[in-house]
């Protein structure tokens, strides 16, 4: 009867072999579904945890990074060792980074820095956090992180390369010059067109000033000619349009300029760090 019972219990668990074979055959979506079946039909915690993590890796390999993140999140890490927790946090951070959720990615990576480990995932977390901090335009923090990696964890052969990256790219001249939206708006409020000059859009600034002066002149001429209704309605309306238009276009232009500038720098650093990864 004991034998029968053991057979029965064993049989209740859904086998992971099929899912594993699909995974190894690079049929990741089918493998993910099979792993979910294993999770659902198994009562054994270790098999369930294995299936969940494999499901996450299936999604990762299929390029569905956010789905992978959601599955890594299902892992019950409370009973994990610190090095395993580090692996999970690194994967969570990586999946969020690849899904463009940089603030959340940073949160998971920060968790790793509180763990008393120095595994390969821990080291990779530092490098990944450099990329995340770059995306968050926290360049000085990214530079410090890269220096920490170079001095404490980098292999001897790569140490010089990393220090070279820091010295060459994280300098005042090389870092992207980002513009402040609030400053640009304030400037344009005080002196129309000044905000556009500040962000480097001189042509637009001159155009804005010309139109504004033209509408002011139009209003003035109408007052001079005694067309008070025309100046008070059409003239003032035109002036208001060009004044507020000059300020409001900054809301679109400043983020666009900042994005383009940081993109060039971040991509450059990403390509440099890829070889170290």
């Amino acid at each position: 009867m004991c034998l029968l019972r053991s057979f029965s219990t064993e049989a209740q668990s859904y086998p992971v072999q099929l899912a594993d074979s699909l995974f190894h055959a690079a049929q990741y979506e089918a493998a993910a579904l099979e792993y979910e079946k294993c999770v659902f039909f198994n009562k054994n915690d270790s098999i369930t945890e294995y299936a969940v993590s494999q499901r996450a890796y299936s999604f990762k390999n299929a390029g569905k990074y956010f789905d992978a993140y959601q599955n890594f999140l299902r892992l019950d890490t409370d009973n994990y060792t610190d090095s395993l927790k580090c692996v999970v946090n690194y994967q969570l951070g990586l999946m969020l980074y690849l899904s463009n959720y940089f603030v959340d990615a940073d949160t998971y990576l920060q968790r790793n820095f509180n763990l008393p480990v120095s595994t390969s995932e821990y080291k990779k977390s530092i490098l990944l956090d450099v990329l995340v901090l770059n995306e968050l335009t926290k360049y000085s923090e990214a530079r410090n992180k890269l220096m920490v990696y170079a001095s404490n964890y980098a292999p001897t052969a790569l140490k010089d390369t990393i220090i070279f990256i820091v010295d060459t790219y994280y300098t005042k001249e090389q870092l992207p010059h980002l513009k402040s939206l609030s400053k640009a708006r304030e400037l344009s409020k005080i002196l129309p067109g000044a905000g556009l000059f500040y962000i480097g859009k001189s042509g637009r600034a001159l155009g804005n000033i010309t139109f504004l002066l033209g509408s002011a002149a139009y209003t003035g001429i109408n007052i001079y000619c005694g067309n008070y209704i025309t100046s008070a309605t059409a003239g003032v309306h035109l002036m208001r349009l060009f004044y507020t238009g000059g300020i409001n276009q900054l809301n679109v232009l400043v983020p666009l300029i900042n994005y383009n500038r940081s993109r060039i720098f971040n991509d450059k650093i990403k390509s440099k760090l890829q070889c170290i990864f």
């Binding site: 034998l3 029968l4 057979f7 029965s8 064993e10 049989a11 086998p15 079946k37 659902f40």
Partner: peptide, 24 residues
């Protein structure tokens, strides 16, 4: 007899019923 019972139980559990599919 014991072996065949065990074997059949094992196969019965591996073979998914329609209700299992519905649950999933």
């Amino acid at each position: 007899l014991l072996f065949s019972v065990c074997f059949s139980v094992g196969f019965a559990q591996q073979d998914f019923t329609f209700n299992d599919d519905l649950d999933f």
